[in-house]
Design a protein around this nucleic acid. Structure first.
Lengths: 342, 342
DNA sequence: AACGTATCAAGAAAATAATTTGCAGGAACC
DNA sequence: GGTTCCTGCAAATTATTTTCTTGATACGTT
């Protein structure tokens, strides 16, 4: 991909200050190329679909870069953040009026955030907002079925959105490599949610030809951890990050030089206990009735992991998958387009 | 809410044709008020947050109303649908040029779709598109970890989006009522995916104080179905809709007048076998490596169901949840903000 | 410390570009 | 043959951006 960032003279304008986005992009210590990609995705408006760059949204940029903005710009940012519906619908004049600044200031504000123009800014905003907005306005409007459904769907989409934003791609890749090369995989998790994740890991990975067992039983976990070899991999999930037994299992495994992978909250005991941590940090609402959308995020991580493993060991996986599929098809009926398994 | 749709003279313009959206809105047999709401949500640009109306997107409108559009308008719609990135970034002139029509035609096109203006159209488009776009462009760009992650996240969000669009809220409500009133619930599902859903149902519903058991064992399912009473409820999941054993279990239950609920593809054998069907109809991609994002949609249905049940039996649920939480907290450490279970 | 210079923010006004409206020609459909 | 509707043109309107200017602040020099 050729990076001809800032085509046209309008982009940098007269001053030489780099886009804030450019500065942001390398923040998380990720691969540098991603940073370049992001900026390019913003600056160019060619037929590039919404890439990772598209996901690194104005919303976040505004919040994070608030400190670097001027007084007037902060006022604009606040209005946009607070009354977002107004912002996407308003004209530059209306927005300027509400922020008590002149229209040019708004244009400059947009430029500074890496947009080409005011309308580009609005588009970026609208694009992010559909999903990203709701986490600012937590609770459902009513308990009418339609509202509840809407709320759950939006929350789930948000969870995915936030997951993606905070995703440590490099860590996932390392984890996938470990799993792909493992002689045996142990997947641990307890409690309704994490045990589901462990089972899910098994469900995904055995199809790829991996040897894997899942357990939600603490005692078994400890014994398995003790029995594991350095050529194996132990992967464990804990939503709370405070599953003390899992921590013990990790410790045991690490003593025996068994690679360990944790899906959990970062900076938690479980996270510290594992060699590779795949962090999932999401805010949970207060509604105790509401099932956690966090699970969906965890599931997505499992999906990503499994996909990467699949690509790593492609030839082997194809054969196994085909065999399973074949078996299912003949077992049921001849519709080849059915899902793999039920 | 006061419905002053079409404020200002610009809205209807000179011709009296009602907005297509207005016609659409009552299509699915939903509550009429929702229809009104939708139009109002589009037409007014007050501080109303993205409601259900906001989800009923331009994209769908364009696809469904294609037949009613004029030649020129169809050309515009096609360009927007195909090269969506272009459409959100382009000015009205560029878009008009590409569609070989005049700018006014584009404006009229937007109006017809229920937008106030071209820029309103772009905003609506951008808003929907973030999520809704990808299902048109199926496969991931590369197998680089970042792309794979992006692909899976987007697909998952899309699955949720499509689920929501096709959701039969009335059916879910009926199902929730049935579950809330059941003396005992049997949750069935086989194969990695559906058995997870069954387990998940158990995991969600037992916390609300319901008596529930999950089984992925065909023989057990049959026996349980035979043993169930009319005051119980049988709920089963089948991604493929072709789980013959589940069909048999449903048949058995219905003979004994036991209410049956199915989470499955509509118009499938399983769907026909159950009294209430909660349809989940999503297109699956061709990439056999890719884990099904459909699971996430099913999980969302479970969430919605569980939430509704929770609201129905609120007092009881509060007590049970509190007890479980209490137990977990004392069992771990004192951090009350932890998730409910791991 | 005081002065001068450079730098930057921000508004006013002008210029430009985009969008909408009114109108009229023309095609399709009764 | 009349009506209706689609469509483009050109004018009018409106929105956005650029340019220019002013005032404020920070920095370096004497």
């Amino acid at each position: 991909m050729v990076v001809t960032a800032c085509h046209g003279s309008a982009c940098m304008g007269t001053n030489d200050k780099p886009h804030l986005l450019a500065r942001l992009s390398t923040g998380a210590g990720g691969i540098d190329e991603i940073g370049v990609d992001r900026v390019a995705a913003y600056v160019s408006n060619v037929t590039r679909p919404a890439t990772r760059g598209g996901l690194m949204d104005i919303f976040t940029t505004m919040q994070e870069e608030r400190g670097r903005l001027s007084q007037s710009e902060i006022r604009i940012a606040d209005i946009v953040l607070n009354d977002f519906e107004f912002a996407v619908n308003a004209s530059i004049i209306e927005l300027a009026g509400k922020a008590d600044v002149s229209p040019p200031t708004v244009t400059r504000f947009c430029r500074r955030l890496g947009c080409e123009s005011f309308s580009d800014f609005k588009v970026q905003l609208a694009r992010t907002a559909y999903v990203g907005m709701r986490y600012l306005k937590p609770e459902p409007k009513s308990i009418a079925p339609a509202d509840v459904a809407q709320d759950i769907i939006t929350k789930a989409q948000n969870a995915l959105f936030l997951l993606h934003r905070g995703l440590d791609v490099a860590a996932i890749e390392r984890a996938a490599n470990r799993l792909a090369g493992a002689e045996m995989v142990y997947a641990f998790g307890s409690g309704g949610n994490s045990s589901m994740i462990a089972t899910e890991l098994q469900n995904r990975l055995f199809r790829l030809g991996l040897r894997i067992t899942a357990s939600s039983d603490h005692s078994m976990q400890l014994m398995m951890a003790a029995a594991a070899k350095p050529t194996d991999v132990l992967i464990g999930s804990s939503f709370s990050g405070r599953n003390a037994e899992l921590v013990r299992a990790f410790a045991l495994a690490r003593e025996a030089k068994v690679p360990t992978i944790a899906l959990t909250q970062s900076e938690s005991p479980v996270a510290h206990a594992a060699e590779i941590t795949l962090p999932v940090d999401l805010p949970e609402g207060d509604n105790i009735y509401r099932p956690t959308s966090t699970r969906i995020a965890y599931l997505a991580v499992v999906d990503i992991l499994a996909s990467l493993v699949a690509y790593r060991i492609q030839p082997q996986a194809t054969v196994t998958l085909r065999r399973i599929k074949q078996q299912l098809v003949t077992h049921r009926d001849g519709d080849d387009r059915q899902l793999l398994g039920d």
